[in-house]
Amino acid sequence: MNLFEYSRPEDPSTAAKAGSADGASYIAGGTNLVDLMKLGIARPTRLVDVNRLDLAKIEWRSDGVLRIGAAARNSNLAADPGVRARFPMLSRAILSGASGQIRNVASTAGNLLQRTRCPYFYDGVSPCNKREPGKGCSATDGFNRIHAILGATDACIATHPSDMAVALLALGATVVTLKADGQTGRIALDDLYRLPGDTPNIETNLKSGELITHVELAAPPSGARQIYRKVRDRASFAFALVSVGGIVAMENGRIASAALAFGGLAPKPWRDPEVEQLLVGQAPSTEAFEAAADCLLKDAKGRGDNSFKIPLVRRTLIACLRDLTIDGAEA
């Protein structure tokens, strides 16, 4: 049997030390890790339970920064009145993912670090570079309807499945960590994730034992409008085929600032600064939105079953940008 040691430290520094041991894995809600352990895909030899670290708080700092504890439950974060008022796209993104039961136990850090839903990764048998480096990728010419059109390589075309991470990325979140040596780390969310390259088994830039303690969000630009739109195969409990998280501020009829992040497109939540720069200073128009979509998709590569994502994200982005910039609508 895959026997493992289990510890439940009371303070983060003890946890970070325990987590830096060989074969260690942190566990909070366990909604993904336990599944992967049952399937034999994750085989940690040590589980470090982070539920007693007092990291479940959702706090507003005096400088207006929202500090989300790594162990805050998805349901609590989505329901927080301050989050709903100031970061509605975050609430919406969280509530569009999984089911109520899963959100009740799933943690903030766990949501960020959840693994792909690629069926070949999950089946435990098919060649998969993420699971067994060097074996090849079964999805590139297999059933790849849910797979990536951006940022992928022939080594791996898996997508990151989180909704929450897409919203956090558009909102410019920073991940705060505690390293095994006791130092605090700060990583822009975009830099937390690595693209697959030829090492899709390495998914983040976290060092061994590095423990996510918080996620921080600066106040959004005043008057900016937010959206999170998820397109999926059924009304609930399905991963995004495509999702768009956007926050746009208007000034004198022109786009003053824009941040856009995308789910379902890439191995990580996707953000492309060029697309945003293209929009800033523009008056809303179909042409401007089409140009933004062209820019986003200039390197897009469909592989058959997933090729529909190219027109789908184009259409969804245009509709989102309209909603974000339409005159007279409430901010």
Partner: peptide
């Protein structure tokens, strides 16, 4: 390929 209920969709409520 679609072996579990996350990938084999049936209607939810």
């Amino acid at each position: 390929v679609t072996r579990d209920l996350a990938e084999y969709h049936v209607p939810v409520s």
